[in-house]
Write a protein that binds this DNA or RNA. Structure first.
Length: 154
DNA sequence: GCCAACGTTGGC
DNA sequence: GCCAACGTTGGC
């Protein structure tokens, strides 16, 4: 089973939005980065777990856990000219952008802040993609060891 | 193929 | 709001 971290801006779509969503499930659409796309398309499997991370906000932090309930399939918003993530060059016959469906599992008792994670950047969390300088990936893998350690921080 | 310019991300 | 870092674009 794979482990991941998925970023979302709480002002746009936060953990509370997912918890309130129908069937507590959402399409993870709008990712327009090739590396993240490849993780969505080829890496994520049904049953994988992911940390839900709040980015670009007052307190960047891991706030919850979600489960992948549908593996990668074409992101239809790329074909919708009215969508903010429309990609005119994307061909429906050969989709460029993919998404998965994720379902709310639980919120953490308290958020694990980016600052807390950084405290371990040279130790137990060495190599965690989230802590790479200038990291802009919105979907990234988390090793089992890192996953367990982070859960222990909660 | 190089690389400068640009738009975006995201922490602070 | 600022700005560093990054990915993408497009001229050459």
């Amino acid at each position: 089973m794979g482990h991941w971290l998925m970023k979302s801006e709480p002002d746009v779509f936060g953990i509370e939005d997912l918890a309130k969503a129908r069937r507590k499930t959402t399409h993870w659409d709008g990712v327009r980065n090739y590396q993240a796309r490849t993780y969505l398309r080829d890496g994520m499997r049904v049953g994988d777990l992911a940390f839900f991370y709040h980015s670009n906000c007052d307190e960047p932090a891991i706030v919850g856990i979600v489960e992948v309930v549908r593996a990668g399939y074409p992101d239809h918003t790329a074909f919708d000219a009215n969508d903010a993530h429309f990609d005119a060059d994307s061909d429906p016959k050969q989709p460029r952008w993919f998404m998965v469906d994720v379902r709310f599992t639980r919120k953490l008792a308290r958020p694990i802040t980016l600052a807390t994670l950084r405290n371990h950047s040279a130790g137990a969390l060495k190599g965690l993609a989230l802590l790479r300088r200038g990291n802009r990936l919105s979907v990234m893998p988390v090793s089992v060891a890192h996953w367990k350690f982070i859960l222990g921080l909660a």
